[in-house]
Design a protein around this nucleic acid. Structure first.
Lengths: 125, 125
DNA sequence: CCACTATATGAACACCTGTTCATGTGAGCG
DNA sequence: CGCTCACATGAACAGGTGTTCATATAGTGG
């Protein structure tokens, strides 16, 4: 059901017929700009095939940079750059044992997110 | 525990000490390249703040292009371009009623994914 | 038909991303 | 020490991304 606009809302759209109730209800359920930005950055990080593979690998067990590079066929530098991005978003963390940095997921939520994602896409293939 | 490599694996990394067991176990749990690519593209789509807001809005109720534009303060063109990207990944679908295109999420998985994501990031803020 | 409305789309452009290459750091070891 | 190893990082470059602007399409009502 489309309701002709009462023009009670400012013209943010070049379209003439809007449903004010839907627009206000939609705005009310929106998350804060900070939450949107942070989640978008999180998804963007997972939106690179190599970073996604890294996260998926780390969701199984703790791995060092060189194990990741060898397992995924990536250069050490590329892995390290990717891990920094994931670290800055607090998706992964690491502990250092001598020279070796062992990385793992910072939060179990991330593992669930990626697992759910794979479940979803594997239905589409 | 780090095991010196037996060099049974090809040198995919410039590092000399690897754990062959971990590397092989990691490779075994990797998803197919197609699944990885598709999921990465899905996450990348959700990795734009505006597309994320669109998906979040559509997870509540069906909306037309112009309602989305008005509610989110975006241009009609930007909304339409964003929706096309989401459509191509089968994240949203639409039905046409006369001139108006009503969009909604194609799959309930996506709503769960985004909701879980917000739950995660709102713990970090 | 013509005007208007809702949406889609192509082009263009500034901006951002991910890799490689080269080099830096810092810990262990002979 | 000096060397090697594990990892980090800066620069730079090709390729990709999201927006705007202009225009197209298609349905609707006079």
């Amino acid at each position: 059901m489309v309701i002709s606009s009462t023009r009670s809302l400012p013209d943010l759209c070049d379209v003439k017929t809007v449903d004010d109730r839907k627009i206000l209800a939609t705005r009310r359920t929106m998350r804060s700009p900070e939450a949107v930005m942070l989640l978008a950055e999180t998804f963007k990080s997972l939106g690179d095939p190599n970073r996604l593979r890294i996260v998926w690998a780390l969701s199984r067990e703790e791995l060092c940079v060189c194990d990741l590079a060898a397992a995924l066929g990536m250069s050490q530098s590329a892995v390290s750059h990717s891990l920094r991005a994931l670290r800055q978003l607090r998706l992964v963390r690491y502990r250092k044992e001598n020279k070796i940095a062992y990385y793992k997921l910072d939060d179990a939520h991330i593992a669930h997110l990626v697992a759910d994602g794979f479940e979803h896409v594997e239905e589409l293939l």
